[in-house]
Write a protein that binds this DNA or RNA. Structure first.
Ligand SMILES: NC(=O)c1ccc[n+]([C@@H]2O[C@H](COP(=O)([O-])OP(=O)(O)OC[C@H]3O[C@@H](n4cnc5c(N)ncnc54)[C@H](O)[C@@H]3O)[C@@H](O)[C@H]2O)c1
Ligand SMILES: NC(=O)c1ccc[n+]([C@@H]2O[C@H](COP(=O)([O-])OP(=O)(O)OC[C@H]3O[C@@H](n4cnc5c(N)ncnc54)[C@H](O)[C@@H]3O)[C@@H](O)[C@H]2O)c1
Lengths: 234, 234
DNA sequence: ATGCACTCGTGCATACATTCACAAAGCGGG
DNA sequence: CCCGCTTTGTGAATGTATGCACGAGTGCAT
């Protein structure tokens, strides 16, 4: 094997693991709130609804932070997962589209709590501009670049109608955003190096429909696990 | 080769493919609307943002519906994918939790259009009961079983606060629902044979944070694709 | 001190998913 | 009717993820 420098190169964490780390994190934070100080891979696996070996392997990508015979120290794991996910500081987000969904998102306090404060909401419709949602005033989309720069926004949320989603994404990218969470049922085209994740409710329902229909057809079956290997496409 | 009965045994479609079929379907419907009659795996791949070989393999699980040298007939593919996904009839859904999100969902017309009409919205809070959202009157959660039975609902949506989500899921299951779409940031525990998919926005943002942070740390990287292999856990 | 019970970390086997690469099949032009 | 062009369908190779099984630490009781 090649000589390896002490300053270890940050290991690439498998996509499938990246998807599960936030789930472990949420559970661990809940446990910490309940004054649980130590947890075993078995215990965490139970709460996360996965296999214990998978938990151990996932956590092993962060480093050897467990204690054999004992388990993992909850507070320490929380810290390590936060660090690995880049959650040591806030990531302000900007929401494009102040409609039904955009308003629900902006008004939802859960994001700010988890380190994703809403830095701004923009819309193309002058009629929407100026109204206040969740303590944030809706601004015109022309102000997008200004918001992104002044608030150092890296993450944008697309909540426009499907037909406007690509336009919204283009504007976000030219404003300097490098990660996009897309709610519009549209495949966004973005330059290499920009991460995109999508949330498509109709797709989710259709997937459920498949398993539902299958169950009806052939005896029972179902099963399968929710998020194996979702990354963030670029 | 073995003799094969005409009434072919339904092949199991890989989870990763099941996740992509709805995306192909949406694109194909759009193409049909634009009077496109034929499409190649290359063309569909382009629009779906995936590899052409993947498209062909995915479609091959449905059967040999392409024409070599030509491509796939759009209308026929639409029909076949719909059939395979169980979208030949409507799947009424019931929404539990008439808060911020539940209201946005109920008011959103996109579901009904795609074959998932809202059969009912229920809430535990008497104050919410009786109000009308998107043409549906909010009813008390005690009426859940009645709605599920009378409207033959198989799919339930959980849009309650996290602390109430397991209760909501339990009630859905006892009412007879066998598929659940969960918006609460909680791992639901359900009996074997019940499908669950979750939509967790905080998790999505945290995943983006990881890749974002990584980009800052080591040169560039990013990439990865959105939904490899999401199934529906039971 | 020694042994025992427990739990991590990980090599390895297996399963699943992606991609390549090419023969087979269909189409159209001459 | 045949030839050349196109595009499918799929074996095989590669890449990724899962889960088992067990060695190796750790803590505690005796
Ligand atoms: N509302 C839901 O529950 C729900 C559910 C699933 C998916 N979605 C999807 O989310 C997206 C938004 O849904 P909605 O219900 O909020 O729609 P909406 O029509 O209520 O709101 C869309 C908003 O985007 C604005 N907009 C339009 N073009 C724009 C542009 N180029 N730049 C900036 N803003 C622009 C509009 O002015 C409007 O305010 C849609 O793509 C929809 O399919 C919504
Ligand atoms: N609003 C958003 O944009 C958003 C975004 C991401 C996640 N979420 C998640 O979605 C869920 C709902 O969010 P929200 O903003 O609509 O919350 P909300 O508080 O506005 O609404 C929750 C509703 O559920 C009802 N409820 C409570 N317990 C119930 C029970 N046992 N059975 C039936 N109904 C019950 C409440 O009366 C209330 O009407 C939460 O888990 C939240 O974390 C919401």
């Amino acid at each position: 094997m090649e000589f390896m420098p002490v300053e270890r190169v940050r290991r690439r964490i498998p996509d499938a693991t990246v998807v599960r780390l936030p789930i472990y994190l949420r559970i661990l934070v809940e446990q910490a709130d309940e004054k649980v100080e130590w947890i075993s891979s078995e215990g965490l696996a139970e709460l996360a609804g996965v296999n214990a070996a998978k938990v151990r392997k996932d956590l092993s990508y962060l480093g050897s932070y467990g204690t054999r015979g004992v388990g993992y120290e909850v507070a320490f794991l929380v810290y390590q997962i936060r660090r690995e996910l880049g959650l040591t500081h806030d990531w302000p987000v900007v929401i494009v589209g102040a409609g039904n969904l955009g308003q629900a998102l902006a008004g939802y306090g859960g994001f700010g709590e988890r380190g994703f404060p809403v830095a701004g909401v923009v819309d193309i419709e002058p009629a929407k501009v100026g109204s206040v949602i969740g303590g944030v005033r809706v601004r015109h989309i022309e102000d997008l670049a200004q918001i992104v720069h002044s608030r150092r926004v890296h993450i944008g949320v697309v909540a426009t109608p499907p037909g406007a989603a690509q336009d919204a994404a283009d504007r976000l990218v030219s404003a300097g955003v490098t990660s996009i969470l897309n709610f519009a049922p549209v495949v966004l085209v973005v330059p290499r190096g920009i991460s995109v994740r999508k949330v498509d409710l109709a797709v989710e329902l259709q997937i459920l429909s498949y398993y539902e229909q299958r169950r009806a057809g052939v005896g029972l079956h179902a099963v399968t696990s929710n998020d194996a290997g979702r990354g963030a496409s670029a």
